[in-house]
């Protein structure tokens, strides 16, 4: 779908400029700026309440930011500020070029609709009207996320937590998005399931040339997936840089604390 040529690689896929979201007088996130290039995975880490989910939701258009711009390089019109674009256009973006993976799979899935229906929903939302083709694609995507296609007519409520999360990922990636927002994609899963999910995510991101913004408090996740890292504290970005650089040589006191707090087995 999005053949990333060398020329396109020069323009950032997404430019976040001085994004600020306030909750009354309290800071959600303040003055966040960064560029995300095609194929790049950005990790956002920080403790609970540091504003990382707020930032993610503001970028994905779920919350209206108080000021700042989120410029996305759309396929049709080039770079557009998504905060000021019309709601229909933003929602259209939300089900074509963007994907959002929630921490809790049940927030992102329709629990009363079969796995095939869940995957097919995005296809039907963008005009897919051929049952056979929708079903074939759904089966194909179930395979890609390592769910047996004999489960295509089962409801997500019959799935394990890890399968639900993988189903959510399949449902989001089926329309070939270019940018995936992930909010703690491995939260609440046990470590072996986490490892498989991370493996899967990594191969999907590489295969499809996806860009992703991953919010997590788990440093192992960003070490594995992210090219670049932003560390947030109290709504501010306190440090950013290449993942390995930030994790191996943390400069800010909070990052040092964060890195040293990781439990070693």
């Amino acid at each position: 779908m999005s053949a990333s040529t060398g020329e396109q690689d020069m323009t950032p896929l997404m430019q976040v400029k001085a994004l600020t979201k306030m909750y009354g007088h309290r800071i959600g996130c303040k003055n966040v700026s960064f560029d995300l290039y095609p194929g790049e995975v950005m990790g956002i880490v920080g403790e609970s309440g540091s504003g990382k989910s707020t930032l993610l939701n503001a970028m994905a258009g779920h919350h209206a930011p108080d000021c700042g711009e989120v410029v996305f390089d759309t396929r049709a019109d080039g770079p557009v500020d998504t905060c000021t674009m019309s709601e229909p256009a933003r929602r259209m973006l939300g089900r074509t070029d963007w994907a959002f993976v929630h921490q809790h799979a049940r927030d992102g899935l329709r629990m009363s609709v079969s796995a095939g229906g869940n995957i097919g929903e995005r296809l039907m939302a963008v005009g897919g009207r051929h049952y056979g083709e929708i079903r074939d694609q759904a089966a194909d995507w179930l395979g890609r996320v390592e769910i047996s296609d004999s489960r295509i007519d089962d409801r997500p409520s019959d799935f394990s937590g890890g399968m639900q999360q993988r189903l959510q990922i399949a449902r989001n990636l089926v329309t070939g998005p270019r940018l995936v927002f992930m909010d703690e994609p491995t939260g609440g899963l046990d470590v072996s399931v986490q490892a498989r999910l991370l493996d899967l995510l990594r191969s999907l991101v590489r295969e499809m040339g996806l860009s992703a913004i991953i919010v997590t408090h788990d440093l192992a996740v960003v070490r594995l997936l992210a090219d670049r890292l932003m560390v947030m504290k109290d709504g501010y970005v306190v440090e950013s840089g290449l993942t390995d650089q930030v994790l191996d040589d943390p400069q800010h006191a909070y990052t040092q604390l964060l890195v040293s707090s990781v439990l070693q087995v």
Partner: peptide, 18 residues
């Protein structure tokens, strides 16, 4: 208001699959 009717077809999809 935004003419987002993909969901209606999800119901028909579920009918056919079941």
């Amino acid at each position: 208001s935004l003419e987002e009717y993909g969901l209606m077809h999800v119901k028909l999809y579920e009918d056919i699959s079941q």
